[in-house]
Structures are given as C-alpha cells and as structure tokens.
Amino acid sequence: MSKSVKIYSTPTCPFCIRAKQFLKENKITFEDLDVSQNPEYAEEMIRKSGQMGVPVLDIEGEIIVGFDKERIKSALGL
C-alpha cells in the first residue's frame, strides 16, 4: 500500500530538487506543490510546519522539514 506523499517546494531550491530526485529514484509517487506559484500552498506549508523553509514533506501526516534523508526513509518504510 503506497503512502500519500506531498512535497512543498520551490523550483529553484536545490534541496527540493534533491528530495524529489530521491523520491523518484525510490519509485515513490508524490504530489509536488510549488509554493512560489500558489500562495495557498505556501500558507498550508507554513501552517503544517510552523516555518517557512523549503522543502517540507508531508508523508501520511508526518511533517518533515528539509531534505532529511533518514527521516524520509523511515517515514516511507524504506
């Protein structure tokens, strides 16, 4: 059963790019929310994580700030 994965990102942020690459490499389907294009996503991200740094990952409700590979792995059960 695959988990619901959302990533709040900006197109220029290197760690967002790396996080998305990592998900792709592991064949994880995810929803990419570009906070620079959509203020609603930005607000949602700030509300969920209490901060403004990108990327933010929402893995089945678990909020991970930054490209924290170990936490992402454990949240995904990789």
Partner: peptide, 17 residues
C-alpha cells in the same frame, strides 16, 4: 530562523512574493 529569516535566497526567496 526559517520563520522569515533565512540564509538561502535561492531556496526560500519565492516564499516572499
């Protein structure tokens, strides 16, 4: 830090539209 203060304009700049 990360609540409006950042060291990476490339990363977080777009949030300040």
């Amino acid at each position: 830090k990360n609540r409006g203060l950042t060291y990476c304009a490339t990363c977080d700049g777009p949030l300040f539209a």
